[in-house]
Amino acid sequence: MIGAIDNAKRALRADLRERRQQRSQPALEEAEAGVKAQLDALVAATGARSVSCFLSTPTEPGTHAFVADAVARGIRVLLPITRADGLLDWAVATSDADIAEGLFGLPEPVAEVLSPLALNDVDLLLIPAAAVDRSGMRLGWGRGFFDKTLGSMEKCPPVYAVIFDSELLDEVPRDLHDQAVTGVVTPTQTLRLA
Rank of each mutant, 00 (worst) to 15 (best):
M1S: 14
G3L: 13
G3W: 12
A4R: 13
K9D: 08
R10P: 00
L12Q: 14
L12A: 13
R13C: 03
R20H: 12
G34F: 07
V35W: 07
K36L: 14
A37Q: 14
A37C: 11
A41G: 14
V43G: 06
G47K: 11
A48E: 11
S50G: 09
S52Q: 05
C53V: 08
F54C: 07
L55N: 06
L55C: 10
T57P: 08
T59C: 10
E60F: 06
T63E: 10
A65G: 14
A65N: 13
D69F: 11
A70L: 07
R73K: 14
I75Q: 08
V77N: 03
G86C: 05
L87D: 11
D89H: 12
A93N: 05
E101V: 07
E101P: 09
L103T: 05
V110P: 06
L125V: 11
L125G: 02
L125P: 01
L126T: 04
A131I: 03
V132N: 03
D133W: 05
M137Q: 13
M137S: 10
R138A: 00
G140D: 00
R143H: 14
D147P: 02
S152T: 07
M153A: 05
M153D: 06
P158Y: 04
P158W: 00
V159P: 01
V159S: 09
V162I: 15
I163P: 00
I163H: 04
F164H: 10
F164Y: 15
F164T: 10
S166E: 14
E167M: 02
L169T: 00
L176W: 06
H177L: 04
A180H: 00
T186C: 04
T188G: 03
T188L: 01
L191K: 02
L193E: 02
